[in-house]
């Protein structure tokens, strides 16, 4: 256990749903036999965080920073390259497919892409019923009732049950994905951009629905998104990722009132405001510079290539994450100077 464990020592073990310690997931993008030529995408590179039972932990960050990979590695769709995944006190990092089965019921994922994630040859009933059958939860008439129930829970109708995914719009498909995840009565739901493909009135409904389901079923959420206004709305704590690393972690109000990392500050300023006059007068931090390549990124702060406060040390030394205020963690060499903290 390192000292950089985000206030983990303040929380009792039994209150923790999920803990991730030094989690790594690397991808080989070309399998050259010569080691020096090998290219490795460090999609997730040493993440530490924990989620309390019944809590919503928001994970935000740049496209390609490794949010989905984090989610997929946690449910072991990907084999982790390093680190540990601890679910409700059990280390599941190295469990075999068969040993994972009970955990697959307890951990469900709602996928980012409502198009690719539903099997086009299956009806809605088959899609939602699959998990129910795998885990032998309901049979016959009860099973059908349960499926109608789930459809109503997510705001669809019974008559949708025998249709195929391609007959639905994006938003409707996402609801089918949510119903599928809820079908097996999970404890932890990893929501990978569950609302980003939906329009606003439906987003509000889905967010309220996820909220209510959490109250009713005591669910724990890992909520992955890039819409910061919605993440702020739904999350208790938020982690900001950049190229496989955690930049800042803190309670969600604190993140908005007092962002310390230059990347978080840029993110917040880039949120489009639904007010044309305000937008026209607003000053934005438009990030300059290239995103560092995730292939062999080397040493140094991963945000340094786009950071307007970048100094030599930022390019040379990877900043360790440290506690700035109680429960507010940040990985930046210069956050004190930048924010005038003495």
């Amino acid at each position: 256990m390192t000292e950089n464990n985000f206030g983990r020592n303040d929380v009792k073990d039994k209150d923790i749903m999920l803990e991730v310690i030094g989690l790594k997931k690397y991808f080989n993008v070309n399998n050259s036999l010569r080691k020096s030529k090998r290219k490795i995408v460090t999609a997730v590179d040493g993440l530490n965080f924990f989620i309390k039972k019944g809590e919503t932990f928001g994970l935000v960050g740049e496209s390609g920073c490794g949010k989905s990979t984090t989610g997929r590695t946690i449910i072991k769709l990907y084999e982790p390259t390093g680190g540990q995944i601890i679910f409700d006190g059990n280390d599941i990092t190295h469990l075999s497919g068969k040993e994972m089965l009970p955990y697959r019921k307890k951990m469900q994922m709602i996928f980012q892409d409502p198009y690719a994630s539903l099997n086009g040859r299956m009806t809605v009933t088959d899609i939602i019923g699959e998990g129910i059958d795998t885990h032998r939860l309901y049979l016959g008439k009860e099973r059908q009732e349960r499926i109608y129930d789930l459809l109503h829970t997510v705001g669809l109708k019974s008559e949708h049950a025998n249709r195929y995914p391609h007959e639905f719009s994006g938003g409707q498909r996402q609801r089918i994905g949510i119903a599928r995840a809820l079908a097996v009565e999970p404890e932890l739901v990893i929501c990978d951009e569950p609302i980003s493909a939906l329009d606003v009135s439906i987003q509000a409904q889905v967010v309220n629905m996820l909220d209510d389901l959490q109250d009713k079923m005591g669910l724990t959420y890992l909520f992955i998104a890039h819409d910061l206004s919605m993440v702020k709305h739904i999350s208790d704590r938020i982690g900001v990722m950049y190229l496989g690393k955690m930049m800042e972690v803190c309670p969600s109000d604190e993140l908005y009132d007092n962002p310390l990392h230059p990347y978080t500050q840029a993110l917040l300023s880039a949120i489009p405001v639904p007010d044309p006059k305000l937008t026209r007068s607003q000053k934005r931090i438009i990030l300059e510079g290239d995103v560092k390549s995730p292939i062999n990124p080397g040493e140094g702060c991963r945000f340094s290539s786009r950071c307007r406060y970048c100094k030599d040390i930022c390019k040379e030394v990877t900043p360790e994450i440290e506690e700035a205020n109680h429960g507010h963690y940040i990985a930046c060499h210069r956050y004190k100077e930048i924010n005038g903290i003495v």
Partner: peptide, 24 residues
């Protein structure tokens, strides 16, 4: 108007419930 009302506002502190348009 319903669309305008269901947009989340970034305000610190309280966590207002969103006002979605009812029904589907």
């Amino acid at each position: 108007n319903g669309l305008h009302n269901s947009v989340p506002h970034i305000v610190s502190g309280k966590r207002d419930r969103l006002i979605p348009i009812k029904g589907s």
